[in-house]
Design a protein around this nucleic acid. Sequence first.
DNA 1: CGAATCCTTGAACACCTTCAACAGGGGTGG
DNA 2: CCACCCCTGTTGAAGGTGTTCAAGGATTCG
Lengths: 249, 249
Amino acid sequence: MAATQALPTLDAARLKIACKSCSLFELCLPLGLESNDLDRLETIIQRAKPLTPGTHVFHVGDPFRAIYAIRSGSLKSYTLTNDGEEQITGFHLPGELVGLDAISTNAHHCGAIALETVSICTIPFDQIQTLSQTIPSLGQQLLRLMSMEIMHNQDHLATLSKKSADQRLAALLISISERYKRRGFSESEFNLTMSRGDIGNYLGLAIETVSRLFTKFQQQNILETQRKFVRILDMQQLKTIAGSCGTAC
Amino acid sequence: MAATQALPTLDAARLKIACKSCSLFELCLPLGLESNDLDRLETIIQRAKPLTPGTHVFHVGDPFRAIYAIRSGSLKSYTLTNDGEEQITGFHLPGELVGLDAISTNAHHCGAIALETVSICTIPFDQIQTLSQTIPSLGQQLLRLMSMEIMHNQDHLATLSKKSADQRLAALLISISERYKRRGFSESEFNLTMSRGDIGNYLGLAIETVSRLFTKFQQQNILETQRKFVRILDMQQLKTIAGSCGTAC
DNA sequence: CGAATCCTTGAACACCTTCAACAGGGGTGG
DNA sequence: CCACCCCTGTTGAAGGTGTTCAAGGATTCG
């Protein structure tokens, strides 16, 4: 059972500060694991050098070997449409997993690119599967995370299908704000790590429309922006715009 | 509604002809299972009376107890937007699983409604999890099916984000055609089980737009339609419209 | 047979896109 | 350090695609 071999002290130290002391613990794959199971998970996790902005974590079509958790920084994931255009499917913050869509085909259907300097935990999939057989809660957490991804995609799908441009941008800003908040950062001030073009691509809008919306929100005193920096001045109104459901949400 | 009479011998027979002889075997959850493992899976699968059109398989917010496989007929699944509107997230044919999005929250995020008379296999989730611990390939197949759902949602997301109304309807018709074909039905003639309103809702278009597109495709001799019946006359052109990538796809 | 529902068609309008030009940083090289 | 260039982002005007509003036709079901 304890395949964990004695490790050099340096590695042990590095591993020790890994998942157990990671502030993202409760958002990430290890959630729900016992301490000793966590130790076993940590032995299979690989932590490489940070990636520089614009670097691929994996490309579309790459063979599927691992899933990836973000330790710090942010990513965008994208698919290619059949005429070769990029469709951004999500922006990912620390604690989130990417690469889950590759399980069924054994090849990455999405690509993932660093939006800023990013630290990644690489988790080889065959080893997760092996571990899951003796750590049921690991497999369960993997299922939960995949289910969350399905839910999130469905929400975004509804956004693209039904909402106006204003609503879409408001919803994105709120989503980013809430995710930063959960990670202990300011919910009202942050730097967008993605370009206007990325935002437009993700929201199904032209880049010019996104730009105009930022201007408009600023004129309405909902936001204050300087290029990538955003300060939310009126969260309530932003939520009203996003949800268009009066005061309740 | 009517009393579910216990018919022991009939039930036993019905269970016996279950997954092993089901024509959907290779599309569904049992794929990849050994014969004896399949027997064990079949003991937990519940097969109730067919549902009548318009009946819910499960509602939004229902506690999560099981996932559901379609034996015959078709379903639509939908989420509710925060202002209470229905957003259809998918149309489902025999062999497909629904309810996978509920795993993370233990409550159904989507609802599912029968579009016609539908036979359902109910697979209690706690029992799948128990079984998966001794049948690894069952857990793997579940992961694969969830991954496929993620991929499918991402494709649809790209459709809503980038494609024109013509492209969206063409893509949907091709998707339905291909899925019928894989199940041994005609790829060029079928009955749409969903309404124009459902199609519009799914594709992010007004019902009037959908209606006009059907008229247009008919005038272009791509389709022949009589209300819900569709005959595809020019599959090649339909694919060209959907993909807008010349002759290749 | 009538009512209700679903679908179709027409016309005006709105929203967002496209095209075009310009502004403003950030980096590089002189 | 400044000038220059490139890239990103902003702004304006025109145009198109799909929506909305409105009315009429078809089908189903009681």
